[in-house]
Design a protein around this nucleic acid. Sequence first.
RNA 1: GGUCCCAUCGUCUAGCGGUUAGGACGUAGCCCUCUCAAGGCUAAAACACGGGUUCGAUUCCCGUUGGGACUACCA
Length: 473
Amino acid sequence: MSDKIRVRFAPSPTGHLHIGGARTALFNWLFARANKGAFILRIEDTDLDRSTDEYIQAIIEGMNWLGLTYDEGPHRQTARFDVYKAHIDRLLAEGKAYYCYCTREELEAKKEAAIAAKIPYKYDGTCRNSEDAREGVSPVVRFRMPQHGATIVDDLIRGRMVFENEQLDDLVIARSDGSPVYNFVVVVDDVDMGITHVIRGDDHINNTPKQIQLYKAIGHGEPPLFAHLPMILGADKTRLSKRHGATSVMAYKDMGYLPEALNNYLVRLGWSSGDQEVFSMDEMVAQFDFSHIGKSAGVFNPEKLLWLNAHYIKTSASERLAELIRPFLAANGLLAEDAAVDSAWLAKAINTLKERSQTLVEMAGQMRFYIGDTVEFDQKTKEKFLTPDAQPLLESLRDRLQDLADFSHDGIESVFKGICENAGIGLKKIAQPARVALTGGTASPGIYELVEVMGRSLAVARLNAAIEAMKAV
RNA sequence: GGUCCCAUCGUCUAGCGGUUAGGACGUAGCCCUCUCAAGGCUAAAACACGGGUUCGAUUCCCGUUGGGACUACCA
């Protein structure tokens, strides 16, 4: 256990698992799996006002959906307040931290003054050397940050970064109510949990030197190694947020995306392995390495994700898709959740839809080809294809399908071919009117498979309905 | 304002001193074809700028410009 790699994903439960968090989780997971290490889930819920149990569940749900299994956790920081308290007391006793009685108002005023005078703001250290308690003020605890020398971060992705210690603030580690603050608990937990590598977004870069100083005060050995991942940006190159559309992982599930598509998209946003674009989870694990993680922020590209999703739909087993699509069919009203529809039939239908569906939502919509007694005709389409010339052809088609002994793809094909030969016409002359009659539209799966999956009775019924509609004109 | 990070087609990226600067998404055209897709082929499309270093810079160094993050008793 001593030199085993241990990494963690540490989201705060103040929202759903979003795209950026999911990628951080994925990279941690990949690194752990690639090195036979441990992947730990830690919930950073020290912000009591904004954290909720619902979001904890939502984050876990998102990770489960993506298949990012964790080996330990979820650990909750709110369950460890006594641990933090002990560290704070010790730091206080050792003089590495001190009580600060400055009020928020005073601090705010000093900050505004600094900004107005255009000088860089930093806590002025009023309480650093004075032990004077003030009546009626419950103090915060500040960490005594070294003010000389420099803190060096040898980032696994960015290389060496040097921070002058005089730039570092005496940061608050405990609020006036005694509760510990993020930068502090992160360090305590990483030490306690034996974290060897901290893989996180590069929005944490400026926290790193502060945390390293905390490690030196709290930890025993060396601080962990750091790897700062580039940010994910929206199309306008600002940090990805709700403004850019769906950002929660589960929203993608609801929009009919497959988890492997999202994982594959995310892994290629910032990391590469030559020219390869499509990766199974096993391939990602086998090929993942820090040296091919880029440094620059990436723009989230929904079109490419959609392309990957279409790819995975095309290549997934239809049996699996048949199960996944049921909720979507229930949602669009085509098939009740508990409808007794044969999965084998569903899979057969999906076979004809896979190559023309980019999402499960889209595929569920296309199930209209096969489910439902009536079809709606667009007026223009009807005029163009359900012509007087076509009527006898459709009648003939109906009769032949009615009498067809071998109601298979090949049997159906021979029916169409037979009609073409009889009438001396090309397939196009009958296929398009038939397609319109059977589906109401001009775009559908191949006509033979369409009829086959639809089944004899529905095909005949729809043909009859179309023929009636033609007569009515 | 301060600190830090970043910079190859519109986007994701390959490249690790000498390449016709490669791939992918998207876009356009063609082929295939019963429609729509899928698939195949082709095309347009990039090294931000200026200095160095070097026989030679997309690649190494510095600066400029441009983006971004952080700058809380949030995480």
